[in-house]
Amino acid sequence: MKCLNRCGKRRVFIPLLFFFSLSSQSEPIVPITSPSGLNEREVQLGKRLFHSTELSRDNSISCASCHKVGGGGDDDLPFAVGVDGQVGPINSPTVLNSSLNAFQFWDGRAATLEEQAEGPIHNPLEMGSSWQEVIEKLSGSSAWVDEFREVYQDGITSVNIARAIATYERALVTPNSPFDRYLQGNESAIEDQAKEGYRLFKRMGCVSCHQGQNVGGNMFQQFGIMGDYFRDRGSITEADYGRFNVTGKERDRYTFKVPGLRNVAQTAPYFHDGSAETLPDAIRTMARYQLGRGITADQVRAIEAFLKSLSGQVREDLL
C-alpha cells in the first residue's frame, strides 16, 4: 500500500510532467505591449467619434454609452440598453484590450475591430442607425468635416469612420497591471494571495482557455462542457446559441469566444448572459461547468485576488 502511494504519486507525476513542462517552458499569460505606429490624430478623431451620440438614430447613444472607457470599458449591466431604452440580448464585452482579441463579438462574427464598428450602428436594438444617416449628420457639421479632412483625404466615409474608431480602440490597451509587472519580474507587484491564485488558475486548468496576452480572446469554447449550464439556467435564447448563429454547425451550438480576463474586476456582471454578479460567482460557475470540479472558498478568494491584479490603466488622455 505504501508502495502504491509512492507509485501513485509517481504515476501522478507523469501527467503532471505535462503540466510542469507547461510552466517550465513559458508562462501562458504574457504582459501587454503598448501598440506602436498609431496615428495620434486618427486616435483623437476616433475618440471623438466613440463618444459621439450622432452615431445613433436619435442622437442618444454613443459607443461609450455601453463601453464606458473610464468604467472598465463596459456598462455594468447584464444586457446592453440601446435607443428608446431597448434592452439587448447579450452582455456588453469590454472595449479595453479588445484589439488583442482574435475575433470580435461573443459569436466571433467580426474578424477585425473595423468590422465590429459596423454592427452596433446598424443594430436596431443598439444605435438603430445606418452609415448613410451617420455620414449625413457628420457632414452637416463643419467641425467634423474639417477634422475628417485633416486625417483622411477622402473625408467622411464609412470606411474612415470605422478606421478612426478602430484606431482609437487599439490605443485602449491597459498595460502595466500589477500582474504584468509581476510577470516582468517585480515580485512585490502582487500579494501572495494573488500569486497563489495564479498558481491555482494554472493548475486547475482555467489557463487552458484563458491564456495569451489578453488572458483569453483567442479561441472558442463551449459553455457547459462538464455540465449542462443552459439546462440548469433555463430560458434559452437565440443569443445562447453563440457561434452556431454564425457557422450553423451543431458542434458550435452554445460555443462562444473565450472572453479576455484583463480588467475583469471592472466588468461585472459576467458571462454572455450577465448571470454572475460577482467574481466569486463567476469563478464557481466556471469551476463547475467548465472544469468539472469543486472549488473551495479559499481557492475562490485566491483566484479572485489574482484576477483583480489583472486590471491596468487606460491612457489618461483617451478617457
Binding site: V12, P15, L16, F18, F19, R203, M204, G205, S208, C209, M219, Q221, Q222, I225, L291, G292, R293
Partner: peptide
C-alpha cells in the same frame, strides 16, 4: 483545451 484539462483534473 478541454482534453488537456480533463487529463489533469481527473488525477487532481
Amino acid at each position: 483545451s478541454v482534453f488537456r484539462n480533463s487529463q489533469l483534473i481527473v488525477f487532481q
